[in-house]
Amino acid sequence: MLRIDRASYDAIVAHARRDHPDEACGVVAGPEGSDRPERFIPMLNAARSPTFYEFDSGDLLRLYREMDDRDEVPVVVYHSHTATEAYPSRTDISYASEPFAHYVLVSTREHGEQTGLAGDDVELRSFRIVDGQVTEEDVDVVESYLFGHTPTTVVYD
């Protein structure tokens, strides 16, 4: 299951809508081992295409160095599909190489533009992609990680 805070969820959706009809892409980084997406990092789609996305090679290096310095990993790797459903394409599967990441797909095929009307939500789904195997997972959106669904002990320091 992907557990993600509302702010990150909304930021992914907003990015996908903004870049429609091109595909949008990015990551939400989080502390290594936490499985908690915390830091939203929209990336430039170097392909600037409605059917393909690719992080620029220099951006990719800077992103991974920065995450490495902060002991972060890409907890979520997201991108949008602008004409098809929010399900990994064959190309997505062939490139997927973060076995611990949640691959989030957003489809803007129906609702690229935000209308403010009921029912204009975009489709957002999450998957694991490991060794070419795609497994869909539930998405649990929490208002914040501190006051999420799971009871936690809050330690004030």
Binding site: E54, S57, L60, Y95
Partner: peptide, 10 residues
């Protein structure tokens, strides 16, 4: 030398 998987797809 740094090796990184491309982040790309369709």
């Amino acid at each position: 030398v740094t090796i990184l998987p491309a982040v790309a797809g369709g």
